[in-house]
Simulated assay, not measured.
Amino acid sequence: MNLLKARTGWDWILGGLTLFRKRPFFLTNLFFIYLISMILLSMIPFIGQILPILIAPVFTFLFMYVCFSIDIGRQITFRECFEVLDRTIIWRLVMVGGFYLIFGLLAVGLSFLVEGGNLFFLFVQNSPDKLPSPDLGGMFIALGLIFIVYIPFAMATWFAAPLIGWKKMGFGKALFYSFFTIVREYRPFVVYMFSWVFGFILLNLASGLLNILIGRSVAAFIAFILSVIISVWMYCSFYPTYRDIFGRPDSNL
């Protein structure tokens, strides 16, 4: 693994943009296939709420595999995307999804423990007027605790999917290597994360300005297009974070 400079975090973002510009329609279509699949899975009775969470790491690896193919100049089809998966890899990726689910349950538990679950109800109902007992102070405390817990969780899962898919690591080993890799390479990741946060803040400010200048309907459409482009761009930037630390995967994969 290579020790990287802080500015590499910005290079990862630019690297994601370069990958996106090479095959924008293919990557955007893959992103929409994922979104539609998650919606359809969520409609399954009883287990529909957890299936999208369990399957999310599978999509993460598939998207990174497509970015790898673009990076080496290989033309890839949607069918070839799924040929890289075998039963063992899928099972381990689903286990990472189970780890996502555990964090979600922990976040809900913290919400109920600290402020009676108002944060959870706000997320589910998306309406502050329907909260059973609004407590802004408690909600901010709960949100802060969840964020503190989320940091080590995100560190452990960031590289888990590609390490399982490309390095054939087991579930626990992938989480271990992912966590301590980011501990070692924290400087570029700080730049990377704050750059994306700043970008999404600018997107929200631009959406508000468009609402004033051209009206809500047109502004909402433009904001939707921009959010899709930025989301796909962000997914594309995941691959350079792996490549620059662990090296480019074998081109025979």
Rank of each mutant, 00 (worst) to 15 (best):
I89D: 07
A107D: 10
I201K: 10
L226A: 15
P249V: 00
L210F: 14
G48R: 11
I39Y: 12
T77D: 10
F26H: 03
L4T: 00
N211M: 12
L175W: 03
S37R: 04
I76Y: 08
I201P: 08
W233R: 02
L209S: 11
F78M: 12
I201M: 13
F31T: 05
P52D: 09
I229Y: 13
N126S: 12
A219D: 06
A219N: 05
I182E: 01
Q75M: 07
I222C: 04
A56Q: 11
Y177W: 14
S217G: 05
I89W: 08
P249A: 04
S217Q: 12
S231F: 04
L209V: 14
P52N: 12
I13V: 14
I36K: 02
P188Y: 05
K168A: 08
N2H: 05
L85Y: 10
F123Q: 13
L4C: 01
V108D: 12
Y192M: 05
Y150G: 02
A161L: 05
W91F: 10
D129N: 09
R243P: 03
I47C: 09
I201Q: 10
K22R: 14
I44Q: 08
C81T: 14
I245D: 06
C81P: 00
P52W: 04
F189V: 08
S217K: 10
E80C: 03
V108C: 04
F25E: 10
L122A: 11
T28H: 03
S111G: 11
P128W: 11
M169L: 15
L203S: 09
F140P: 01
L17I: 11
V218R: 06
I141Q: 10
L143S: 14
L19H: 01
L119Y: 07
S42K: 11
I214L: 11
I53P: 06
M139Y: 06
G48A: 09
V232P: 08
I151N: 08
P128E: 08
D129Q: 13
I102A: 15
Y192V: 02
L85K: 12
V124W: 13
F179H: 10
I229R: 07
I245M: 06
G16M: 01
N204P: 00
P57L: 04
F68W: 12
A107N: 06
G172L: 15
L30H: 02
N252K: 13
L205V: 15
G215A: 05
L143C: 08
Y192Q: 03
I90Q: 06
L131K: 04
P24W: 07
P45C: 07
A223K: 02
S133N: 14
I146T: 11
L122G: 03
I44G: 09
P57Y: 02
Y242V: 00
E80Q: 15
Y150T: 03
S195V: 00
P57V: 05
L210T: 10
I53S: 11
I36E: 03
I55N: 05
T88N: 13
L101F: 15
S133W: 02
F179R: 09
F63M: 09
A154L: 11
G137D: 05
I102N: 01
Y235G: 00
L209M: 13
